[in-house]
Design a protein around this nucleic acid. Structure first.
Lengths: 226, 226
DNA sequence: ACAAAAGTGTTGAGAGTACACCCATGC
DNA sequence: GCATGGGTGTACTCTCAACACTTTTGT
């Protein structure tokens, strides 16, 4: 820290891993790169930070550019900064991950993307830069958080049945769960309330639930540091 | 991500929160700033990244400059990037935290510090920049990790008694632990081995232990949800 | 002998896990 | 009435927390 201007500065970007649940699957939003390097390959949405916006604001801006949503779960994931991760030069990226309910989003291509679409986390295309590493880490973190917080709800629509909730957990964790134990535990946690409505379909109609606002607030309070 | 040169670049620094256990206390290494801004105030050691080194290498370099040690526990903590956190302009800092055994270190002042010394985490001086926030977060993370991993050992010398280990946990967690439960739990985790030596002093001599480096250190996390 | 720290077991409560059948509806 | 998914209870195991006295050494 000798002198302020002595050091060449890296470029700094923010990348946002956007997860959702669609088609009974855990999916992630990717964009196809319009420009070199890695032209035509798939990448996590992101972009350069602006000089007067916070990192979180930059992540929210990217998120909104790609999905038109705000007010979703967003958490800083990790900062990736290997000197050779971008062939154009030194680029450090602060990765975030976001959880959005599928029904709230219609992906749209941004400026630098020819195309944007959902991909299954379990069947990904080849990815630009070190984005495979970033996604692998994001999945690990999502699974881990699911085990001790209630973030799973952030991926579901406003109301849902217990079977839908259980299916969400199973898809993300990649394992089957016992129905009775799941229901007992989730109900005794006191974070759900019945809506009074039912979902009909094949078989017996299922009670619809929503998250209790106060419980969701508690989870949200714990989510982001500073 | 329109064009590479369109964006003014922020400066990027790495700050390293260096924890140790000394004098029966959890302490952190701070340096007194020689230059403005915040001249004369205490700060977490850190500095600008070099254009061709990775973030982790930069953190290791800072750590070695301040403490002359390598090969200690080092983990990326969080990236702080509010636009106004440094009055000189836009500076993003990638914070790391390091755990060093007290007997391995003799702090030394670096280039930009008039002075370097250990401070109790529980009696800190006023800090430069947003370093109070960084330290608060580092402590939270350290406590959290202590509950489900074996990182506590990284703060202790090569060999130690169970009472010393317990005292370390108590200082970091800020609470008293039951001796019998602590011993049973830590021994049944199978991560310690006896050295065969004893530490003598006042009272009955105590067995010395060391950490088994082949042990899987992760203590099973208790899940909030299935 | 006494001070000082090391070391040691049991019990009760609560949480987690495994497991199989009846219920309400649409067709 | 039958196919389909929704909904329910119990017994066993394991983990965690609370709690007090004996042992070994140095002086």
């Amino acid at each position: 820290m000798t002198d302020w201007d002595d050091y060449p500065r890296p470029a700094v970007t923010v990348d946002v891993v956007i997860f959702t649940l669609r088609e009974g699957d855990l999916q992630v939003l990717l964009i196809r790169r319009r420009n070199p390097p890695f032209q035509g390959m798939w990448a996590i949405p992101g972009g350069f930070i602006r000089i007067d916006e916070s990192l979180e604001d930059a992540a929210l801006r990217e998120l909104e550019e790609e999905t038109s949503v705000r007010d979703v779960y967003l958490e800083q994931l990790y900062t990736f900064g290997d000197p050779d991760r971008d062939p154009r030069g030194r680029v450090i990226t602060v990765a975030y991950f976001a959880l959005v309910p599928a029904d709230a989003v219609r992906p749209r291509a941004g400026d630098d993307a020819a195309e944007a679409r959902w991909w299954s986390m379990y069947h990904l295309p080849p990815l630009a830069f070190d984005h495979d590493k970033i996604l692998a880490y994001a999945l690990q973190r999502l699974r881990y958080k699911l085990e001790y917080t209630a973030v799973g709800f952030e991926l579901l629509p406003e109301t849902f049945t217990l079977s839908e909730l259980q299916a969400a957990y199973e898809v993300i964790l990649g394992e089957k769960l016992d129905k009775r134990n799941f229901r007992r535990k989730i109900l005794s946690a006191g974070i759900l309330e019945e809506t009074g409505e039912y979902r009909t379909g094949e078989g017996r109609p299922a009670k619809l639930y929503r998250f209790r606002d106060d419980a969701v607030a508690e989870v949200k309070a714990r989510r982001l540091f500073p």
